[in-house]
Amino acid sequence: MAIPVTPGRRPGRAWPRWADTAVGVGILAVLLFPIYWMINVSLQPGGSAVGTPWLPVHLSFHGYSTALSQQGRNLLTSLVVALGSVAFCLVIATPAAYVLAQFRLRFAGAILFGVLISQMIPGIVIANALYTAYTDAGLLNSVPGLILADSTAGIPFAILIVRAFMTSIPQSVIEAGRVDGAGHLRTFVSIVLPMSRNALITAALFSFLFAWADFLFALTLTTTADVRPVTLGLYTYIGTYVSDWSSVMATAVLASIPAIVLLVVAQRYVAAGTTAGAVK
C-alpha cells in the first residue's frame, strides 16, 4: 500500500490538507473519466460515437430536451420503484435481522446461510421464474411487482448488514425495555430501531442503488410503456434506425442526479463497518 495509514496528520509536516484534497480530486478525475465522457457526448450535437472531441465545443442541449420530454415519466417511475423497494426491504429485513441478532434460535444459522446462498443465484434465473408467477398473479406491468422483484438484491443484503449491527446492541437494553412493560413490537420500534439508525441508512442506501440500477427485472416484468423505469426507457432510444446517443447520455445524466443527491446526503451516516459480523 503506497498510502500510509494515518488518521489525521500530525502537525509539523509540510503536507497541507488541501494537498490531500488535490490528490483526491486527481483520483476522482481518473475514476470518473467515463462519466465525463458521458456528459461530453450528451452535449454533442451529432449523436455519433466516432471521433468525439475531447470537449463539447459546439454545445447542444437537444439531447436534454428530448430526454426531459420523453423520459420524465420514466424517471418518476424509477424513483417510486426505488423508494418503494427501500421501504419494503427495511420492513421485511429489519425485524428478521433483529430476531436473528438478539435471540438464540436453533435454525438461525440455517437462515443466515440461506441468505448468503441467495446471493449466488444469477438474476436471470430469478427473472425467468418470476415472469410466469407474475403472469398468474397479475403483477406484470405494476409498480408493486417491480418493487417486489427489485428487492431481491436489497433484502438479503439488508438482513446481513442490519443483523451484524444489532448483535452489538446489549441484551440488557432490550430487557430493560421489556421490563418496563413494552411489548416486542414496541421495544423493537422505540428502542432497537433508533439505535440502529446508521445501519438502517446504509441498508436503505444500498437497496436504493440496487433498485435504481435494475434493468433485468424492468425488461422482464414490464411489457407496456405504462410502467417503465428509466433504465428501460434508455434502452428504447437505442433502436432500429437511429441511435441517438446524445439523448441516451442526456437521459443517463438526468437519471443520475436524484441518486447522486441522495448519496451525498446519506453518505455521512453510512456505517458499512457494521458488516463486520455479517458473514460469520
Partner: peptide, 24 residues
C-alpha cells in the same frame, strides 16, 4: 429490418437477458 440490424451490440445483448417463462 432483420435480427442483427436492430440495435447496437451492448444494449441488444443486455436486453436479451430476458425473461422467458420457463414453465410448462
Amino acid at each position: 429490418m432483420f435480427r442483427s440490424t436492430r440495435s447496437r451490440k451492448a444494449p441488444a445483448a443486455l436486453a436479451s437477458i430476458l425473461a422467458i417463462p420457463l414453465t410448462l
